[in-house]
Design a protein around this nucleic acid. Structure first.
Length: 288
DNA sequence: AATACGTGGTG
DNA sequence: TCACCAAGTAT
């Protein structure tokens, strides 16, 4: 049965897939790597413009490695999780120094790079180099949970178990197509909130649908708060730096906030992370 | 294993 | 309106 599921999935992908720049034939390993980092926890539509500008400015790892961390953070704009910008640049430095400027193709080598974990290492190895590895992101976990396991949600992730489950679905050849198709299905059809089961190419094989789409009964992650958190505050502080081409005074960073100790703590954490650089004259700048 | 880490769209 | 959600990683 999984064979037919995979065949129907692949057939669907060939006509339903979105045309995305990092899927183009001329998108090399560096472009794929940049896209994967930007897409971590970030919607495609928000990534598109930043991705284009980034690659135009830094078409190679060496080009990014030669520029400053601050420029990377500035170019990152409001994509979110700006530490990713720092790590992507560190990644470029490591690729330049350790791999002669070429993005490595080996999963273990990719995982050794800053900001690259289990998912991204395999995504690059598979999508940029055509290798056969399971690529498990939140979309794939959800699709497998429903179509194979017959449950409405994926539940808490178990990296090892998830990798093994997806590995079993991959054909001897054509693994990249199956992986990207699983992700695309999860993004467009088998969505978290309101899955479009009537339009699903593998509905006939779906264990969850076959069981009558039973509601999820397992454990759920605690909803993430945002308003009033350090996370929000850090974003507001960094926004001040991004908006200025010059270092800013300490006063400029005294943005309105109900909790002054928290504001100071947030600033300190940004400095500790290397996202903000305290200069000798008492002003603050994006890192050099 | 649980938690921190941005931002903005959406059902 | 307001939780939920989005191609995760590091600690």
């Amino acid at each position: 049965m999984p064979d037919e599921l995979v065949a129907d999935l692949a057939r669907w992908y060939r006509h339903a897939a979105r045309e995305l720049p990092w899927r183009r034939r001329d998108a090399g390993p560096w472009a794929v790597l940049v896209s994967e980092i930007m897409l971590q926890q970030t919607p495609v539509n928000r990534v598109l413009p930043v991705y284009a500008a980034w690659l135009e400015r830094w078409p190679t790892p060496a080009a990014l490695a030669a520029d400053s961390a601050g420029e990377a953070v500035r170019m990152w704009g409001k994509l979110g999780y700006p530490r990713r910008a720092l790590r992507l640049r560190e990644c470029a430095v490591a690729i330049t120094e350790r791999f002669g400027g070429a993005v490595p193709s080996d999963v273990a080598e990719l995982e050794s790079l800053p900001g690259i974990g289990t998912y991204t290492a395999r995504a690059v190895a598979v999508f940029a180099y055509g290798q056969r590895h399971p690529v498990v992101d939140t979309n794939v976990r959800r699709v497998v949970a429903r179509a194979i396991d017959g449950v409405g949600e994926a539940g808490p992730p178990s990296t090892r178990r998830d990798l093994i489950a997806v590995e079993a679905l991959l054909p001897p050849a054509g693994a990249p197509l199956v992986s990207i198709a699983l992700m695309e299905l999860g993004a467009l059809v088998c969505t978290a909130r309101a899955p479009r089961c009537l339009a699903c190419p593998i509905a006939a094989h779906c264990a969850w649908l076959g069981a009558g789409s039973p509601p999820y009964t397992g454990p759920r992650a605690r909803a993430q708060t945002f308003t009033g958190t350090d996370r929000q505050l850090r974003g507001l502080l960094l926004d001040v730096l991004r908006a200025s081409t010059q270092p800013v005074t300490e006063v400029a960073l005294k943005i309105p906030w109900h909790d002054e100790p928290q504001r100071q703590r947030a600033l300190d954490s940004l400095i500790a992370d290397g996202l903000i650089d305290p200069l000798e004259d008492g002003t603050f700048a994006l890192p050099s």
